[in-house]
Amino acid sequence: MLHTVNKSPFEHRALETCLKFARQGAAVLLIEDGVYAAARDTAVAEQVQEALKTVSIYALKPDVEARGMQNRVMDGVRLVDYGGFVDLVVEHNAVQSWL
């Protein structure tokens, strides 16, 4: 399963809920304001690091760059471009969008 999260983890609970239901081996793609969850040293960084033990986490590069976060992405979170987004969709049997 590929999960996408497009809401800021500081203002919404979409990421928290997503991570609760994401199973071992699932992929989570952070897009739009969801990419703020990929930053180091934030109030949600620990939660994301914990999740990285069981799921793969990606962040959409154009959204990361637009928000000036390119130098603050935590280790373990992989950046993908739009082509990579498509690849992730194709690789997984289903996509769940946590809007």
């Binding site: 203002e11 703020y36 590069k61 959204d63 760059e65 928000r67 000036g68």
Partner: peptide, 15 residues
């Protein structure tokens, strides 16, 4: 999240 509006290094070319 309003503080994010002011962060340095924003590059929106890709968007």
């Amino acid at each position: 999240d309003g503080v994010f509006q002011l962060t340095k290094g924003q590059d929106t070319k890709g968007l």
